[in-house]
Design a protein around this nucleic acid. Sequence first.
DNA 1: TTATTGATTGACT
DNA 2: GTCAATCAATAAA
Length: 199
Amino acid sequence: MTEVLGPKFFQRNTTEVARRLLGCTLVHRVGRSILSGRIVETEAYLGIEDRACHSFGGRRTERLTSMYLEGGHSYVYLIYGMHWCFNVVTRSEAHPEAVLIRAIEPLDGIEIMRKNRGFAKRDRDLTSGPGKLCQALKIGKAQDRLPLQKESGLYILRGSKIAEQKIVSAPRIGVDYAGEASQWHLRFYIQHNPFVSKI
DNA sequence: TTATTGATTGACT
DNA sequence: GTCAATCAATAAA
C-alpha cells in the first residue's frame, strides 16, 4: 500500500514541494473508477511576492478562497473561460502559495481518459498539459477546495524520488506579463519524459 | 457600469 | 507560425 501524502508534505517551501511532487501519483476516484497518473511536470507560484501568482499583492477574491486554506488543499480554477487547472496549495493560511500540476503520465483508467479526451489523437495528448489532465481526470469546480486525502477521492501518492540530475528547471509557461517573475526558474519537469507539455 | 485579459488548447496556413 | 473559443476576475470609467 502506497502512502498518501498528508498536510505535512505540502506545508513547507513551495519550490521544494514542486520538485518533490515529480514522480508522485495524482489520483482521482470517480464513482468506482480510479483515474491516476504520474506527475512529470509542475510549476511553483509564490504568493504575494510573485507577479505571476493570482494572490500577488495579497489579492483575495471568491475564486482564491482555496489559496488561503492551509497546505494540502486543492485549488482548481477556470482559465480562458474553458480549461480547468489543478493546483495543490502549500504552506499555511498566511502564505497563499501553490503548485500547478502541468502534466502527468497516465497510469490507471487510461481507457476512461481516452473517452474523456475525445479530441486526443495520441495517448501522449491525454494528459500533457494542465487543461488536458483536468479533462482526462474529470477535475473541475467540484474538486476545488478539497483536502487532499483518500476520503475526498482526490489525493496524491508518494513516488520514488527522482534523481536531481533528471529534474530540469526552467521559466514558467504563459506568464510573460509577469515582468521579472516570468524569468524565475519555477517550472520543473522530468527530463526526456514524453508527457511533458513543452520542451 | 463596460472593457480587457488570461498559469490553454486545438484547428488551421 | 496564426487565431478563435469563452468567461471569471480585474481594471477602467
